[in-house]
Amino acid sequence: MVEQIATTHRAPQTWPKEAWYVAASAGELADRPLGRTICGQPMVFFRGAEGQAIALEDFCPHRGAPLSLGFVRDGELVCGYHGLVMGCTGRATSMPGQRVDRFAGVRRFAVIERYGFLWVWPGDFETADPARLHHLEWAESPEWAYGGGYYHIHCDYRLMIDNLMDLTHETYVHSSSIGQKEIDEAPVETLIDGEQVVTRRFMDGIEAPPFWKMALRGAGLPDDQPVDRWQICRFTLPSHVLIEVGVALAGKGGYDAEDRWKASSIVVDFITPETETSHHYFWGMARRFAVADTALTDTIRTGQGTIFGEDLEMLERQQANLLRYPERKLMKLNIDAGGVRSRLMIDRAIAAERRPEVEAAA
Rank of each mutant, 00 (worst) to 15 (best):
E353S: 09
I112T: 08
G75F: 03
H134I: 00
D259E: 09
V197W: 01
E185C: 08
A219Q: 06
I307F: 09
R287V: 04
K181Q: 15
T272G: 08
A215K: 11
V241L: 05
G303F: 07
I54L: 02
D269A: 14
G27S: 10
I335W: 04
V120C: 09
A362Y: 12
V241T: 03
S342D: 00
A128P: 11
G251Y: 03
D129L: 04
A186L: 04
V197M: 00
H279E: 11
G338N: 03
A215N: 15
A128I: 03
M86D: 00
V2K: 10
E57D: 09
F117D: 00
G27Q: 12
V268L: 12
P356R: 09
I335E: 07
D204C: 13
T8M: 10
P33F: 02
P222I: 03
G179D: 06
G148V: 00
R91F: 01
A263T: 00
A65F: 02
V247N: 12
W283C: 03
Q319A: 11
W230L: 00
G51R: 03
F270R: 06
H152D: 14
G27C: 05
D298Q: 14
E57P: 02
G27K: 14
F289E: 02
A295H: 10
I38N: 06
T272V: 01
G35L: 00
R234S: 13
I153Y: 04
G194A: 06
S342P: 03
N163L: 06
I38Q: 07
W138E: 13
W261Q: 04
T272Y: 04
C88L: 10
S176K: 15
R73Q: 14
T294K: 13
E353P: 02
E359H: 14
S265Q: 15
G147D: 14
G70P: 07
V291Q: 04
D184N: 14
M214D: 12
V85I: 09
V2F: 13
A290H: 06
T294C: 00
R234C: 11
A320R: 13
E357I: 12
L191R: 08
A26P: 07
A139S: 15
P61Q: 05
S264M: 05
D223L: 01
V100I: 05
E359D: 15
S278T: 01
Q225C: 11
Y151I: 08
D336H: 11
A208L: 07
G116C: 04
W20I: 03
G35M: 00
T14Y: 06
G116Y: 10
G253M: 09
A320W: 08
T199K: 04
E137A: 09
I206D: 12
G148M: 00
R217K: 15
T299P: 02
P222A: 08
G70C: 01
E276Y: 02
Q98T: 02
E359G: 08
G27P: 07
Y146S: 01
A110N: 02
V358Q: 13
F308H: 05
G51I: 04
G27Y: 12
C88N: 12
I161V: 15
R341T: 05
L136V: 14
E143N: 14
S25L: 01
H135A: 12
A19I: 07
H169L: 01
T7E: 09
V188S: 13
G90K: 09
G149D: 07
G83V: 04
